[in-house]
Simulated assay, not measured.
Amino acid sequence: MGKALIIGAGGVASVVVHKCCQNPDVFEEICIASRTKSKCDALKAKLDGGKTKISTAKVDADNTQELIELINAFKPEIVINVALPYQDLTIMDACLATGVHYLDTANYEPVDTAKFEYKWQWAYKERFEKAGLTAILGCGFDPGVTGVFSAYAMKHYFDEIHTIDIVDANAGDHGYPFATNFNPEINIREITANGRYWERGEWLETAPLSVKQSYNLPQIGPKNIYLLYHEELESLAQNIKGIEKIRFWMTFSDSYLTHLKVLENVGMTSIEPIMFEGKEIVPLQFLKAILPDPASLGPRTKGKTNIGCIYQGVKDGEAKTYYVYNVCDHEACYAEVGSQAISYTTGVPAMIGAMMLMKGLWKKPGVYNVEEFDPDPFMDALNQYGLPWVEDFSPTLLEK
């Protein structure tokens, strides 16, 4: 069917590459590009010999001109951006300059401050419309599948959705005293920021990790969940009809939170540069360098993740509740693609989103979040490609 350029060579990119190669009818040819070409070559070596033709390239995703040259040389139909969120805009610029569709899994972040906002990317809407190109934003799990779940709930079960609680639980154990399951820099910035949720037309802030509940999650049991801000709240608050309240919750073990507090107290989570032995370093980037690489956690991690959305709303004048979730097994993910479930749950939806576009099912000029497309073919693909979902029409509701 076509060609895809995959930018990035970390844990999520590895899953995307594996999954594209499982679908050679759609992804006839892929190019894996990253600053470190050896990582791309290692991925290619694992998967060479299948029906999908694989090439690799070195590219600095901060450099729009380099990206333009690579895109013009390879001529893909879509760029799948699984690099760093700091690079979203340079990659979008390169797609506009070369007439290629775009997909990412995380919203643009300025390097100097954690914002978790879509405004920079939404500002590209008109340019993508005029170019006749589609940009699909946030097509991982959360954001991503959580948006598709919401569109599906709206389409099939509700006239109005009043509250959404997104619950992201990881009951995996990698055996390290402290490690992060995805990019430590992004992970720690996310957790140490103020919590925020949408209620009746305004954003309400909470101190970091100050709001906690216990929730009994299917297949993994009762867990402490903490209120965080997460970027899909911004788009869902705009795109889902009737929303009065929307919150995002994530599990953390007591050990993880204790380590994080100590690191924060001694300044290791700071993104303010400091001078060290005549060199300027950012403490959080130094911490990232000494923590285990998230891509190395796969063979060590046991247990499951459970990510889903609990909805309350109205259908035909009657109150209705609905919970839809996916449970993913770390060891099963590793056996299939050599990555743990955190990378798997992000990488599979990125491949599916690209497939939706290449098949013409999710193709309309402009910049869109995933809940703005038809959810049905994506939901079918989740069941087909390793992220089956479960429905519950009488879930336990979270405290208000």
Rank of each mutant, 00 (worst) to 15 (best):
H162G: 10
I188S: 01
N181S: 15
D173Y: 10
F178I: 01
Y124G: 05
L84G: 04
H101R: 01
G144R: 04
I166K: 02
P184M: 03
E117C: 09
V111R: 15
N183R: 08
G175D: 06
Y86H: 07
Q121R: 04
E129S: 06
Y124V: 08
D88C: 14
I188V: 04
D112L: 12
I188Y: 01
I164C: 07
P177M: 01
G132K: 01
I164K: 03
T98A: 02
E185N: 14
E126I: 07
G144T: 11
F128A: 03
A106N: 07
K115D: 11
E117I: 10
Y157W: 14
A151G: 13
K125Q: 14
D159V: 13
F178N: 02
K115M: 14
G175M: 07
A83W: 00
A153F: 14
D173M: 06
P143H: 08
E185Y: 15
V111D: 12
A135W: 06
P85W: 02
L96E: 05
G99D: 08
G147L: 09
P110Y: 12
R127N: 09
T146Y: 11
D104E: 06
E109S: 09
V100N: 00
T98R: 01
A97F: 05
D142I: 13
F182C: 03
W120M: 11
T146F: 10
A114G: 12
P143Y: 10
V167C: 05
D112K: 13
A169P: 04
Y157P: 11
Y157S: 11
H174D: 13
H156T: 11
Y176I: 05
L84V: 11
E109Q: 15
Q87C: 13
I136A: 02
M92Q: 03
V111E: 15
A151W: 08
L96I: 10
V82D: 00
P110F: 08
G172P: 05
K155G: 11
K115E: 14
A179E: 00
L137C: 05
K125F: 12
N81W: 01
V167S: 02
G175I: 10
F149S: 12
G99E: 06
Y176C: 03
T105C: 13
T146N: 14
P143K: 08
E109V: 09
A153H: 11
K155I: 11
N81S: 00
A83M: 00
A114T: 12
F128E: 03
Q121V: 05
T134L: 03
T163M: 10
L103C: 03
T105I: 15
H156R: 13
N181M: 14
Q121L: 04
W122S: 05
Y152Q: 05
K119M: 07
D112H: 13
P143N: 09
I188L: 03
A106G: 08
L103P: 00
G132M: 01
L133Q: 07
A153R: 06
M92E: 02
T105P: 12
F116D: 04
V145A: 12
N187V: 04
L96F: 09
V82Y: 00
A83Y: 01
A171L: 06
T134V: 08
I166G: 02
H156N: 15
I91H: 02
L137M: 09
I166S: 02
C139W: 10
F178C: 00
S150I: 04
T180N: 06
N107L: 13
M154G: 11
P110V: 10
L133N: 04
D104T: 08
F116L: 11
D165Y: 10
Q121G: 04
